[in-house]
Every structure is written in structure tokens, then in C-alpha cells.
Simulated assay, not measured.
Amino acid sequence: MTTPARSAQIAQTTPTGAAIAEKVAQAYDFGEVRSCELLRRSFNHVYGLQFADGRHAVARLSADRPRGAPNIGYETALLVHLKVRGVPVAGALAARDGAHAVAMDLPEGERPLILFEHLDGDVPGDVLPDVEATGRGLALLHEAAQDYHGPASRYGLELPDLLHASLERLHAAPTMTDALRPEFSAIARALEARIAAMPALTRVHGHGDCHGMNNFVTEGLDGVRVASFFDFDDAGPGWLAYDLCVYLWAMHPRTVDGSLDATSLARWRSYLAGYRSARPLPSADVDAVAAFMAVRQFWLMGEHAGRIAVWGTQSMPTSWLRTQVKMLTAWAELRTPE
């Protein structure tokens, strides 16, 4: 699907549920759309649909990310591969013409709309058997993706996309100051040197955003809890330590002297135990997790910096950037808890 030149006057529009329902009815053979509602407006727009026959689906209206165009070819092919291997994921549903994405014409230009399978289940939260199931499910996902040979990913879970590009966007942000730029650069250089000094680390096709809110857990036939995954928008090839760090990063306090409480430590240990129950986990990869938490924070700042046209400058005020310098400096001393 080719994308025409985008309007310089419109950053990003939010179509109504009715507009999405109309497009789905035109492009897909699922019959009448009974209801369609906006679930979330974040990196993309996500909608929940119910059809007249009772079926449910989730539609994602993708947007250009700060990194560039959506990674649809890789994402949808990886989902097909994982489903064939028996991994429970929300696969992309084919449109009437067989494509996994259809173009929706909007004031800013064409944006791809994808329809995904609906998943049921519980959010893992702090329920330890469900957290363990999440870790085990991620390990099974990594194992099943080892022999993926489909379309290449546009992006990688590697330093060029996660750290270097994020730092460039951060430097260009209107709320950045001349005093803060060299401080962020020094932190990034030290972080890169820390990672370069590590022993060889494991690489995987990673989910990229496994923070505990992009999977559900259900009861398996044998009574064992089973995790199913969705939202592979950030998936890509890269370091296992980065894919693991996202869960710990999501729990860790965003303060200079923050540390995990007992509940969070128990969750992290259950997560690792679940992973190890399904796939070997080298100690070098676990040790590297703490450093990649800082990489993940740079990624988040880069996402904010690259979305100021949509989210506004108040999404990353200068005061927040000063706090990030202090926090990331403290995080240089972090070690992965076990």
C-alpha cells in the first residue's frame, strides 16, 4: 500500500467509531457492524467492534511513529508464523481482497487500518500465577519465532532505533535546553559503553512492549494459566534483555531513589520463573536487564519528543527533562534484582 504525501496542516485526526465501522463494513466480509467504539488514543487509535452475528474484533488505525511508517509487513507475517506454531496471539484478519491492512483516507493522508482477532482473559496485574504465565508465554513466543523467515522488520530492538534515534529527537525537542543536551548525551554514551562491555547477549524476535498490559491470561485445559498476546506494533528483532526489561521498567518507580517494593519484587521473580520454565535464560541476559531499562526510558522520551505535534509540548516540559537526567544518572547504578 502506497502512502501519498501527507498534509502539513494536520498532525493526526481521530475518526469516530461510526467512521471506522463504515470502513470495516466496506473492506471486510464480516457482515453488519453492530457497534464500534474508540478504546484508546495513544500511539495509534484502537477501536472495539461487535458484529451482528455476535463476533468481536479490534481495529487499529495505525499512525506514522517518530521512527517512521508502520511495520505492518513484518508484524502481520510474524503473527501468522506464531499462530502456526501454536502461540496464542491476536492475529490480523484478512480483508475482502486478502490484504492484512486497508487504507483509510484522512485529512493528513492515508493511514492503514488493521482488524485483529479479539482476545478474552484477565490482565495479569499482581496475581503471581498470571504473572508467571506471562513470563512463560513470552518464552514460548521467543522460542516459536526462532525460525521466522518472513518479511524483514523496518525497525530493530537495537541501540540505533531505541537509543540513538531517540536521543536525536530529544535534542530537537522545543523544551530541550542547551544545558541539558550534553547531559543526556553523556548519559547515552555511558549507557552504550556499558552495554558494549557486556558478554554476548541473546537475540530474539521480541514483542517489544510486554509490560503486562498487552496480554491476557486464561485457564488452560490442564488448569495451568495461559497467556495470549496482542499489540505487536513494537515487535522486532533484537536483544532478549530489552524484551525482558520492559516488564521490570513498567513496575519500577520513576524517582531518583526509587526501589521495588516487596510486591513488585515478587512479581519480577514470578515473571523470570515463568520464562525459565519454558526456555533457558542465560545469566548474562538477566544481568543486562537493568541497563536496558535506561534504554527503554530513552525510547519513551524519544516517543514523546517525536509526537509533540500531536501531544503538545506539555507532554515533556523542561522540568520533566531535568528529572529524567537525575533519574537516569541514578539508574546507572541499578542492578537487575533476582
Rank of each mutant, 00 (worst) to 15 (best):
R335S: 15
A278P: 10
A152V: 05
D287G: 04
N215H: 04
V204Q: 05
A266V: 13
R41I: 07
A133W: 12
S228C: 08
P112H: 08
H118P: 10
L128V: 15
T13S: 13
A59Y: 05
A309I: 02
E132P: 03
R279D: 14
L221R: 01
P151N: 04
R267W: 11
T336H: 01
V84W: 01
G302K: 01
L163Q: 08
T134S: 15
Q297S: 07
I72W: 06
M327W: 02
S228G: 11
A52E: 14
V246L: 14
L38G: 11
L180Q: 06
D209N: 01
V46T: 15
A94H: 06
R6Q: 15
D231Q: 04
L82Q: 09
R267G: 15
I72P: 06
L157S: 05
S153Y: 09
E37W: 00
M316A: 12
G98F: 07
V289D: 09
V286W: 11
Y148Q: 03
G258Q: 13
T14R: 05
S283C: 10
A59H: 04
L141N: 07
R194L: 02
H118E: 06
V58W: 05
R6V: 08
R65N: 14
R40S: 14
L38W: 08
L79T: 06
R136Q: 15
G206S: 10
E32F: 00
L61A: 04
D105F: 06
E143P: 00
V325K: 00
R96Q: 15
F230P: 02
L265D: 06
D126F: 10
A152L: 02
R41L: 09
A188P: 12
A144Q: 07
D147Y: 02
G68N: 11
D231C: 00
R279I: 14
G98K: 02
A145T: 10
P88I: 01
A152K: 01
A145W: 07
A103D: 12
G236L: 05
Y28M: 10
S319V: 06
A290H: 10
R65I: 14
L119A: 08
G306V: 05
A165Q: 08
P337C: 11
S35D: 13
A95C: 05
F51L: 09
A172C: 01
A193I: 05
T76C: 05
P70G: 05
V80C: 10
V46W: 06
G312V: 07
Y242C: 13
E117M: 06
T14D: 13
V102K: 00
Q9R: 00
A21T: 01
A21C: 00
D126Q: 10
A227L: 09
Y74E: 11
G17L: 03
E110N: 03
I187L: 09
D222S: 12
P282W: 08
D147F: 03
L300M: 15
R67K: 13
L159A: 15
S264L: 09
H171D: 09
T218Q: 08
A59F: 02
F292C: 09
T14I: 12
G236D: 04
D287M: 03
P199C: 07
L221K: 00
P151Q: 01
L221P: 07
W331H: 03
E110I: 05
T255N: 09
P88K: 02
S315R: 00
P124T: 10
T323D: 14
A330W: 08
L119W: 02
V246E: 13
S42K: 09
G73R: 00
Y242D: 04
A21M: 03
V127T: 15
E132L: 04
V256C: 02
S42M: 04
G68Q: 12
